[in-house]
Amino acid sequence: MAATLARTESPSATRTAISINDVSVRFGEGRTELTALSGVSLDIPEGGFVTMLGPSGCGKSTLLRAIADLVQISDGNIAVLGRTPREAREARDFAFVFQDATLLPWRNTLDNVRLPIEVGKHAGADYEDPLKLLKMVGLEGRENALPHELSGGMRQRVAIARALVTRPRILLMDEPFGALDEITRDNLNQELLRIWQETGTTIVFVTHSIPEAAFLGQHVLMLKAHPGRVKEFMKVELPAERTLTMRDTVDFIKVTAHLRAMLEECL
């Protein structure tokens, strides 16, 4: 990836991007009420990369959607860069990348990346150059390709470029690589780390993969289920520069072993 994006500002370890305070989320009423999250509290540092792990049904996606103002909070509060989730959404402080790339099939790669510019024009808004983003995610020369002409990994790169076009300060990602083969997933893990380092964007990333969580995250949030609660918010004690060969080291295996043991306790 030859292209780079300058950090909009230097992240500070003392600044908080997302503050989650005693948050609970319930669905339904009466006898059918289901508590998806209960008493969740943590602070995510600005410029950080947090991965989220936990058993199925622990509320990982629910918490991500609560941050994004896609799920209503029952109790507690969430602050996103000092705003409510709704205010942050309206200010386009964050972007969301889903497991499915959700590209419009009749629009080419460049026009799919341009879509947020067209549908969400804000007075004085500052957008990133879509061509520059496509170069950064390794899709230079595929600007005119339609989604059906791209591999699954390429479509996810388009989705990431589209998310970054509004220059969000936070990127929320819900298992974006979960449906991809292992080699493609590994390559996109490396590219996502480069994008994070180049842009300074805060990233919150949901995954079911223990190695992926350890490889990407500066911190791992482990949730336990029924209802979803914080088991541990763990700092990943690995070098800042991550390479795929690191996964064969003793230090990496120790981190994944600890995460696996925690995950078993959360079932």
Rank of each mutant, 00 (worst) to 15 (best):
A125K: 10
A79C: 10
K135D: 15
A79Q: 14
L171C: 06
D93F: 08
H122C: 03
D100H: 11
A179V: 11
A68C: 07
A123M: 06
S74P: 04
A88P: 02
L110R: 13
F98S: 04
N108L: 05
G76Q: 12
L150N: 09
F98W: 07
D69A: 15
L103Y: 03
Q72T: 15
E175M: 11
I73V: 13
L134E: 00
G153H: 12
E182G: 09
E175Q: 11
L70H: 00
L110A: 10
T109E: 00
K135R: 15
W106V: 15
R169M: 05
D129T: 08
N108H: 07
G153R: 13
D126P: 05
E140M: 01
G153F: 07
M154G: 04
P130S: 13
A123C: 06
D93R: 15
L115R: 02
I73Q: 03
M154H: 03
E175A: 07
F94E: 09
D126K: 15
T62L: 12
L103R: 08
R157M: 07
A145L: 06
A91R: 06
A101M: 09
E143R: 14
N144C: 06
V97T: 03
T84K: 05
E149C: 10
L134P: 00
V113M: 04
A163N: 09
M136G: 06
T62N: 13
E128G: 05
G138A: 04
E149L: 12
D100M: 06
L180S: 09
V80C: 10
G124P: 05
A79T: 13
D100Y: 04
G141I: 07
L133D: 00
D129N: 15
R92Y: 03
R86L: 12
V158Y: 00
R114A: 03
G153Q: 13
A101I: 09
G76T: 08
D75I: 08
K132F: 00
E90C: 04
P105R: 11
Q99E: 08
R65H: 09
